[in-house]
């Protein structure tokens, strides 16, 4: 639903790309190959895990990004419910989508790690389970947004807050449910060799910058979408389309 009151941009001139976004994207484009090179050629091979340990350099940053996305979602949706400006809604939608994307990355790479480390693909570990439930509830948010009709924005804003609350509850309840959890003792980032440390933090930096680029681009895409919808309406009013 295009919000007629909102000031967008001059559609005849398009939405200019700010140089900061261009620069940031270029930086991520340069950093990403460097990360891969560091992970595979610089960081030493782990004794027990071998090459599978390389998953760690992408799994953990992806999980952190998913966690970063949660406060972004919560903040943007509360800001939207408060202010009712569409940009907050676009930010919320972008954060939800990226949390799903990185959550899926976590859920694919986690079991691959688990297979090598613990011999099974899936363990009912608190972090893995709450990530799964968070992704499921966020998918539910997207579904509701698609079908809820005129008040979809408010609804998905509310739901994404509930999804974050829910993930916290899942974390705590799985904690009780499992009783003892040996996985938690394995502090993954604790004993990193110096070579690994550099590769790891480079990956974290790249992922965070990449996240910012994607978030920004997604918000811009949402803006363009609104502009397109409005042009469509104008075209229909002018009798150019039906």
């Amino acid at each position: 639903m295009p919000n007629a009151k909102e000031e967008l941009f001059d559609t005849s001139r398009g939405l200019p790309v700010p140089w900061t976004l261009t620069g940031l994207s270029a930086l991520v484009g340069i950093l990403f190959p460097i990360c891969i090179a560091l992970v595979f050629f610089y960081a030493p091979l782990e004794k027990e895990m071998g090459y599978v340990q390389k998953i760690f350099y992408f799994h953990v940053p992806a999980a952190w990004i998913m966690l970063i996305s949660a406060p972004v979602m919560a903040y943007s949706s509360i800001a939207f419910l408060w202010r009712r400006t569409d940009n907050w809604d676009r930010l919320n939608d972008a954060a939800v989508e990226l949390a799903i994307l990185f959550g899926v990355l976590v859920l694919i790479s986690g079991p691959l790690w688990g297979r090598k480390a613990w011999g099974v693909y899936w363990v009912w570990d608190v972090r893995l389970t709450s990530s799964l439930v968070l992704v499921l509830t966020l998918v539910a948010c997207k579904i509701v947004r698609a079908y809820a009709g005129p008040s979809a924005k408010q609804i998905s804003a509310g739901l994404s807050v509930l999804a974050v609350c829910n993930a916290v509850f899942v974390y705590v309840s799985v904690d009780i449910w499992r009783g003892t959890h040996p996985e938690k003792v394995v502090n993954k980032s604790g004993g990193l060799a110096p070579g690994m440390r550099l590769a790891f933090w480079m990956c974290v930096l790249t992922f965070i910058l990449g996240y910012v680029v994607m978030l920004w681009t997604r918000v811009r895409a949402g803006k363009l979408r609104t502009a397109l919808d409005r042009l469509h309406m104008k075209a229909i009013e002018a009798g150019l389309e039906d």
Partner: peptide, 23 residues
């Protein structure tokens, strides 16, 4: 009440509800 207007409300409700009641 969120899915009040959806056409396939019954199906949607189940897939949306279960993740939320997992805890």
């Amino acid at each position: 009440s969120m899915l009040l207007r959806a056409q396939t409300k019954d199906v949607l409700l189940t897939i949306v509800l279960y993740p939320f009641i997992l805890p």
